Computed example of a mutant assay.
Amino acid sequence: MIKIGMIGMSPGNAHPYSWSAIINGKYDVNEINNAGFPAVSDYLEANKDTLGVLGAQVTHIWCDEINRAKSIAISGQIEYVVQNLEDMIGEVDAIILGRDDPENHWELAKPFLDANIPIFIDKPLAINLDELISYEQYIKNGRFLMSCSSMRYSAEILAAKSSIQSLGKIHLLTVVGKKDWKKYGVHMVEATMSLLNDPKALSVQYLGKDGYDIVLLEINTECYASIHLINDITGTFQVSVYGENAWLSIDIKNSYSMFKENILEFVKSLNQKKPTLDFNKTKNVIQIVAAALKSKNLSGEKINL
């Protein structure tokens, strides 16, 4: 049995509740609803027959608020609530850092990287390129680190990849979602890069404003992605792809499916003792996300990658 320690949580991000439920096969609707995440309990209820990951268990939980850790433990039937982050070292086989506040990831992850404990870090891994270089150095030294947006494992994106060649040469992608670039831009970039088999893009330019994040991604000299994250719109994530022969629209709705597949890939990686996701793909995504923020800070200057 792989014993997993969960690090959580950041404001508005329910992954420690949902991912613990997906792995342990247990959840408490009242705890999740009282925490403010009824949509999570809804999709767990709808998929309760498929909950649980064979050979893995979330056994430990740490949060910077002990009462939140206790709530997650009650919901997911996690045996141990630890007072200090480092208390999990020597007690677990792997860590999931289930927070989406990238400015805190490095401080939270470093003790486990130093201890050579495999870790999955929730999206986005970093928005600071110096930290990205530091993570890469751990990879070069043989540490196990995996990080991505679960959008990479979206059932809708994977289905579209199987037919994308029929579109012919692709010239444009429009990508639409909600919330802000710092936390959710990685979703849009991960979906785009994964769909196109992770090309190295040429440049990034920020064209929006606060609440209306608009980013132009030059994938090559004949293909662009226009990415839009609007804070106050409703709807799901959508990707439209326009090729010389045809076009397709991808409506990404099934959050549970992508979370489950992401977790299964992490557990498979643990069993193989090597991430199934090449870190260079993660690096590529994070460089784009960070470059867009740099462009924003430089009043929309085009950033070459």
Rank of each mutant, 00 (worst) to 15 (best):
V53K: 11
E91H: 05
Q83N: 13
L54Q: 14
G55A: 12
I78D: 06
L54M: 15
E65W: 09
E65G: 14
I72Y: 00
I78Y: 00
V82K: 07
D87W: 01
N67R: 12
E65Q: 15
Y80L: 13
G90R: 07
D64W: 07
G52P: 07
T59E: 12
I89H: 02
V58L: 07
D87E: 12
Y80P: 11
Y80I: 14
I66W: 11
G90T: 11
W62S: 02
L54P: 15
E86N: 08
N84M: 01
V81L: 06
D87F: 00
I72G: 07
N84C: 04
I74D: 12
A56W: 01
V82P: 02
S75A: 08
E65L: 15
G55T: 12
A56K: 09
Y80V: 14
V81D: 06
G55H: 12
A56V: 10
N67E: 08
E91W: 01
I74T: 14
V82I: 10
I74K: 13
N67M: 13
Q77A: 13
T59R: 01
L85C: 01
Q57W: 12
E86A: 09
E86I: 06
L85F: 00
V58G: 06
C63A: 08
N84T: 03
N67F: 08
I61M: 05
C63S: 09
M88F: 01
E79V: 07
